[in-house]
Write a protein that binds this DNA or RNA. Structure first.
Lengths: 216, 216
DNA sequence: ACCTGAACACCGTTCAAGT
DNA sequence: ACCTGAACACCGTTCAAGT
């Protein structure tokens, strides 16, 4: 979807700059988090500061374009896993990819916390990702690997949970997230499951996710 | 511990300003997150901008003072729960208070992600909190409510996990965190527990938490 | 059409001048 | 000792001038 925008009557240099910018910014955000300045990114890409804002009217929308790309990639990986022989292993693999993605990218958690989540592009990618997660969860549930009251939307939220638990030790213990993903997955299994104290969000509630009250 | 600093030969107006500043900043951070400006906080407290930096040399240290206060409060609540009759209910209650605290305070997650975590005051409060969590977990484990391979430090990290899962829907579904805390607690129980793929962090690894590589 | 850097508003932080 | 606001460096964003 990012590609289509590049193919519309865009001049060759503009298309090149846009791609260069996305790649450079993605690398910078992943390494240093979203606090890297636009000036730094522009310099690293070898283009003018103003050019960044010509392609993305705001820093948040640049971050949104990158985040939605990553969500799309995760959704694609999940879709491929729908054909896997073992439904439980497929769901575990999907979550593994998702958590690893967040751990490797310093900006992922930050972007998910802010208004970037409200961006239409991110929203669409998130909706699609949720559908894929739903399909994977359905298969795993029918296979007896997942409790009856857990749905795909829960899975997507729990990706952030496992990543967050391990985040403070990201540098010292890069694989720690596997511990908490394992523990959370044990909680998702039917064995020993107790009724959950709160239902999963309705569609209407999901639609309200990420909108800040003040709009600041 | 914040109080002791106020009692040392501090002038009356300074002590008053310091307290006013902490309260005002805590409220502002909780409501709007750490992106509220120092100027706004100073204005709301009715003191000069420069005075803020006289009390706290940096915005991060102001945030650290507030965060460590909250960690102390949670540790105190946990200590009180060590006398509770039901060890499982006590641990659940401890985690409930901890997650609720994070959901109510917009700056909590943000501060935990950044260098604020490396602040000595925050570190000390976190160490104490971990000890309390350890004691609560030991009791619950002996009572058969918690699996053998989960320790107090895991509990502290999992507080952030449950909060993070529910964070995007904070406004729309304020109690959603109860769902994910319930699911995580199910994962902590002995029933259906599978070996975790990664050990809990060692003391040395814990000590490295939150230090950024670049020091930026 | 697109690129660019100077210009603007805002924010964290410093500091000289006040009491 | 402590308070204060003007001054500084930096950052996101805008825009007039270039090709």
């Amino acid at each position: 979807m990012t590609d289509t925008a590049e193919r519309r009557g865009m001049r060759a240099d503009a298309a090149r700059n846009r791609r260069l910018l996305l790649d450079t910014a993605a690398a910078a955000f992943a390494e240093h988090g979203m606090e890297v300045s636009i000036a730094q990114i522009a310099a690293r890409a070898g283009i003018g500061k103003g050019t960044v804002f010509r392609h993305f009217p705001t820093k948040q929308r640049l971050a949104a374009a990158i985040l939605s790309d990553q969500l799309d990639r995760l959704a694609a990986a999940g879709t491929a896993l729908l054909d896997a022989a073992d439904p439980e292993a497929a769901l575990v693999e999907f979550m593994t990819i998702g958590v690893e993605l967040q751990i490797r990218d310093r900006s992922f958690c930050q972007a998910a916390t802010t208004d970037v989540r409200a961006d239409p592009e991110v929203r669409a990618a998130g909706d699609h990702l949720t559908e894929v997660a739903e399909a994977l969860t359905d298969r795993a549930r029918r296979h007896g690997a997942v409790r009856a009251d857990v749905v795909g939307y829960d899975i997507v939220l729990l990706l952030g949970a496992a990543a967050q638990a391990a985040a403070p030790l990201r540098e010292a213990v890069p694989d720690l997230w596997r511990r908490y993903l394992g523990l959370i997955f044990d909680g998702m299994r039917p064995e020993g499951a107790r009724p959950l104290p709160h239902p999963t969000p309705t569609d209407a509630q999901r639609a309200a996710a990420g909108r800040s009250p003040t709009g600041r």
